[in-house]
């Protein structure tokens, strides 16, 4: 569904449903260089199970007009303006990677708007290696290769995709190939620069779920585990074989954990 945010086209996938004010809402926020379809199976499930879903394309990604936003704080404010545009007062937020930083910041800034947050592929600080940032800044293929290889568990290229007939690396590379120059860099830099994690975590009173891939190379489990301590309370679910791309690598386990977390305490 197309919305207008800041005078620009902003897309959010709604699983082919109209927004219904009587239903609770879940907004999904993707990571750097990706788009709403990264949450394909999971967002579709909730859209067909009594929720409004808004799986957003951040500016400059997927179907939303650019330019890409330069900071996590700006993305957090944009998500709220998208909720405004969709006439949604309160929503649960699910974020992956850069999207996880975004929903954390959003919940800290707007406690009245955010009922609970699920943080997938999340670590703080989310430091991006100098080589990766530099390759992205130059829009080099090497950046897309690093994103693809580090973005999945090491066993992924030599194993089976739970999604029949699909090649995860190829899908990631094809998505990245569609990006305008600098979009990946802008996102990675925003992750790298974000400094508000501990302060925002300490502010939260809403329920928090960490979904952690045990073989995540981008946002490693030990960094995630250390950051969990910054919250008053947070629940952690470890998904054993998965890397950073939980929604693709472990789609069912990710969905089951989200169902557990989101099916309680979410009211419109």
């Amino acid at each position: 569904m197309d919305f207008a945010v800041d005078g620009r086209k902003a897309f959010a996938y709604t699983a082919a449903h109209a927004i219904d004010a009587a239903k609770p809402t879940i907004a999904f926020v993707h990571g750097a260089g990706l788009d709403h379809s990264w949450f394909g199976l999971q967002s579709r499930y909730f859209g067909y199970h009594g929720f409004n879903v808004l799986a957003v394309d951040l500016p400059g990604h997927g179907r939303s007009e650019g330019p890409p936003l330069e900071s996590v704080e700006a993305m957090a404010e944009w998500v709220v303006r998208l909720l405004d545009a969709a006439k949604i007062d309160r929503a649960a937020l699910v974020g992956h990677s850069m999207g996880a930083l975004t929903v954390l910041e959003c919940a800290a800034r707007h406690p009245g708007r955010v009922t609970r947050i699920a943080l997938l592929g999340m670590a703080y600080p989310m430091k991006v290696s100098e080589a990766f940032l530099e390759a992205a800044r130059r829009n080099e293929q090497a950046a897309y290769d690093m994103d693809t290889i580090w973005g999945h568990a090491p066993q992924v290229p030599l194993g089976a995709n739970p999604n029949p007939g699909m090649w995860m690396y190829g899908d990631n590379l094809a998505r990245l190939a569609r990006l305008a120059p600098n979009v990946l860099y802008t996102g990675l830099k925003a992750c790298n620069d974000y400094a508000g994690g501990e302060a925002s975590a300490a502010k939260l009173d809403c329920p928090v779920l960490f979904l952690v891939g045990s073989r995540d190379l981008m946002t490693p489990p030990r960094v995630a585990a250390a950051f969990v301590k910054a919250f008053k309370s947070a629940q952690t679910v470890l998904l054993p074989p998965s890397g950073h791309s939980l929604m693709a690598e472990a789609p069912d386990a990710t969905l089951d954990a989200l169902i557990d977390f989101l099916s309680t305490g979410t009211t419109p």
């Binding site: 579709r44 089976a160 995709n161 029949p164 090649w167 789609p251």
Partner: peptide, 27 residues
């Protein structure tokens, strides 16, 4: 059936052995 979960339903649509071939050639 509604494509909310990954998996196999009926071998005309997908099959685990066939899926290995599909993924391998795609790779």
């Amino acid at each position: 059936f509604n494509m909310e979960r990954a998996g196999h339903v009926y071998s005309r649509i997908s099959n685990p052995t066939v899926a290995v071939l599909e993924e391998r050639v795609a790779a």
